[in-house]
Design a protein around this nucleic acid. Structure first.
Lengths: 113, 113
DNA sequence: TCGGTAATTCGCGATATCTATATTTTAATT
DNA sequence: AATTAAAATATAGATATCGCGAATTACCGA
């Protein structure tokens, strides 16, 4: 995954635009924002383990309505772009938003678009 | 072209992300921002005619380095998304940024991404 | 009306994206 | 070791994007 220590450059920005140029992937980013209301109670939401806000693939999949494999691929596209980060714990892979990148991206838009 | 009277919805946002998911198109948006330094003097920059900041296709084309037909297509994608607006004057078609949409887009990012 | 220049549209092959099913990998459980 | 569940990867056909050259349209000036 993209390690955006500094600011986002044009190439990285285009990669993010690509990642967001699909309605389902935008939905995923949005539902991860409200993970509490979207994945409460029974879902495999990480509360401890140092990965707050993380949601596992199958829970995301059941929300999107698309297949498991597509969900997995879409998550890896989002991961590649840096918009989300992931952590594998046991047999689950948890994804959550990477607010740092998202903030940098916002800043990029304001300054470069 | 998209007439964004109100705020941008998800569908429109995805269209804008698609428009920006290409380096050349991002370059065009950026060079139109600095139209003064990019297209000074000799260029067919509109100073009057009520379309300040407008640059014609051939001037944009010579800056991008891609073919004239591709430039034209890219501009129509940007127009469709609402990121730019255009005005035909005589045999020239002038394009300039649509700051209103861009501002709304920025706002969308901040609130919905 | 006839050229000439600007711009759009058309047609195309190459490449990429979309999204699914099937398979494999990883890890937990019994 | 066998079973089960989660997730990733492989494969594939349909569709979309990329970017070009060629053809077409639009508009000017002579």
């Amino acid at each position: 995954m993209k390690q955006e220590l500094e600011r986002i450059d044009d190439e990285h920005a285009v990669e993010i635009f690509k990642a967001l140029s699909n309605q389902t992937r935008v939905n995923i980013i949005q539902m991860l924002k409200d993970h509490d209301s979207n994945f409460s109670a029974q879902a495999h939401v990480i509360k401890d383990e140092g990965f707050e806000g993380g949601v596992c693939v199958s829970d995301i999949q059941s929300k999107t309505g698309i297949s498991q494999s597509t969900t997995s691929q879409y998550l890896s596209i989002l991961l590649q772009s840096g918009l989300v980060e992931m952590k594998r714990i046991g047999q689950w892979t948890y994804y959550r938003r990477n607010e740092k990148t998202i903030k940098q991206f916002e800043k990029y838009i304001g300054m470069n678009i």
